[in-house]
Design a protein around this nucleic acid. Structure first.
Lengths: 339, 339
DNA sequence: TTGTACGCGTTATCAC
DNA sequence: GTGATAACGCGTACAA
């Protein structure tokens, strides 16, 4: 024996059970029947030796990894907890492993993302964690990919799962105008090139137009989906003798939190002086002061749905090309309701 | 050619560059010098072919997976976002991959956890996601393990990273008693067998004793680190004509949120009627109504530290046996401060 | 500096 | 039902 490894292999099991490795493999994978006697012996031996198949060896032989990858921009925002959780639920239920990684679209070419065809059987790609060219490359190789919170590039029509942004935002703005009589509504946009951000902006503009309110570009600030940035930018805006405004729609709840703070620190009352509406319905926003009116996005379900779609591809079934999960306005006090 | 695979292998690179696979391998791993001419050609060819080493094959040959595993109980609580984020930061910086999975200590024996020696080079084990016997088994095999938010079993002295629970809790109770004059302090405990939960309870009892306040078991409720459970249990407690109380210390911020709601729904004012203190300092707790006094736990740093310790083991260095990260009280309004 | 050949642990294809 | 054995893609003595 020239074995270097210390771990117990299928060969050890075979020897101890007095059968060939082929038989052990068959029994493990339930590929072909084995005699009851052998089955019993194998159960005993495997339990005894605490044998666990070596994943890499199996991957190499079967040419699949039994793991799927989730590519994120970062994971510190609360938004990602339900997303990862939803993905993990489906992945583990399918008996797969989950590899998570962060990645930003690479400036330099030839920088391989940390996960891909070499270590997963499929990829869940969040927003702009991969650029169009990288997505195209995966598409070319027919590698299973599902996009999350973004749609497919034209030259790489892979499935995607997103939430309804435009209509919900539009209705939110409608609500501010029609129910609460606001007309000078500040919009805190999210990151450029982010689709969610884009469609929310479109919804905002559409509502303004519906109500004959001219768009003023001074009422468009950058929030970047980050509370600190939203806080800083809004505060500066107010302190530098700003255009008056009576409401703020923020790209997401994180920014809304910054907005709430900035308003408090500059002595503006919410919702009396300024109404505020966010987007996402993070778990804690109903407990904010005042409770935040926001658009509920089913983030956990987005994760589940995207993972399910990915497995449809992997299992050679036909996935939906685009899934748009519904959102709904949650009226609370920050917009002026339930006061 | 009897190749079945469609993907580009090291052999393709070798052929296209007119060298042997050994040379390619050496160049990739920077193991041995390669002539400049060859290096240049390899760069070109690899870029051209978009070659990426097959992880499984590499793992099999090197007998290491280049990935580490993070075992959690679940991932839907906001608490886990910074934890995962911290771990991921170190792991990716080390050039490793991160496998995340959930697991509960198995009732049935012989149920292998989804990640372990067969698919990772080391494991980060959160709280009770593995039972003592499973930890012992890994220890026996000398498999790299670091425990998070729990300490090691006596028979398996593996490193652990936790936060300081007892002193911080004790000081919090001291604060309620000494500064705000509360004496009937309800304690909402966390999950049984959870160490954080246990030590916070010990801190509570210690402070009571210090101040000569007898412990009343009717003032001990179950919160389970879940806002819904804390809400339901406290509400029921109040509505069934409860023992009077003038403060609540909750095992964690999630429970604190439930407590705040239950108090609001039963018409009790915070902090006037009841003072509330939590534990963790989740990102949004400063924006609650009222802002939550809580103990700040450096969760992101716990993740980073644990991952760093794991890599010390993997790199054959000596890790710290136990790391206790400091916590600190953050005084806000829910305890009566800054009113 | 470079090439040859074997082993890593498993599955799958043949035979029997 | 069962066993022998050639892949799977890569790293690494050993040789040159």
């Amino acid at each position: 024996m020239t074995r270097r490894s210390t771990s117990v292999t299928i060969r050890d099991v075979a020897r101890n059970a007095g059968v060939s490795v082929a038989t052990v493999s068959r029994y493990i994978n339930r590929n072909a029947p084995v005699s009851d006697a052998v089955a019993a012996r194998l159960d005993a031996v495997m339990g005894d030796l605490k044998y666990a198949p070596h994943a890499a060896a199996r991957s190499l032989a079967m040419r699949r990894t039994q793991t799927i990858g989730l590519l994120l921009l970062n994971m510190h925002r609360d938004f990602f907890a339900p997303l990862i959780s939803g993905v993990e639920a489906i992945v583990s239920q399918k008996g797969y492993n989950l590899l998570v990684a962060t990645s930003r679209p690479s400036m330099r070419k030839n920088v391989q993302p940390p996960i891909g065809a070499h270590n997963t059987d499929g990829l869940l790609v969040f927003a702009d964690s991969l650029d169009d060219e990288q997505i195209y490359r995966l598409y070319q190789k027919k590698f299973p990919v599902v996009l999350i919170h973004r749609t497919a590039p034209k030259n790489a029509p892979v499935p995607s799962v997103t939430v309804e942004n435009k209509a919900a935002t539009r209705k939110s703005i409608d609500h501010l105008i029609e129910v609460h009589g606001r007309r000078r509504i500040l919009f805190m946009r999210g990151p450029a090139h982010q689709e969610d951000s884009y469609w929310r902006e479109v919804g905002y503009l559409a509502s303004l137009e519906d109500h004959g309110i001219p768009f003023e570009d001074t009422l468009m600030l950058s929030g970047e989906f980050e509370s600190e940035i939203a806080y800083a930018n809004l505060k500066k805006f107010i302190e530098t003798g700003a255009t008056p405004f009576d409401a703020v729609f923020t790209g997401d709840d994180d920014a809304a939190i910054g907005v709430l703070e900035a308003l408090k620190d500059t002595g503006k009352r919410v919702p009396e002086d300024v109404a505020v509406i966010g987007f996402d319905d993070l778990r804690l926003t109903s407990f904010l002061n005042p409770p935040l009116t926001t658009v509920r996005a089913p983030t956990d379900e987005v994760g589940r749905t995207a993972a399910a779609q990915l497995f449809r591809i992997i299992d050679k079934q036909v996935p939906e090309s685009t899934i748009l999960l519904p959102t709904e306005i949650i009226l609370r006090r920050s917009c002026g309701c339930q006061s």
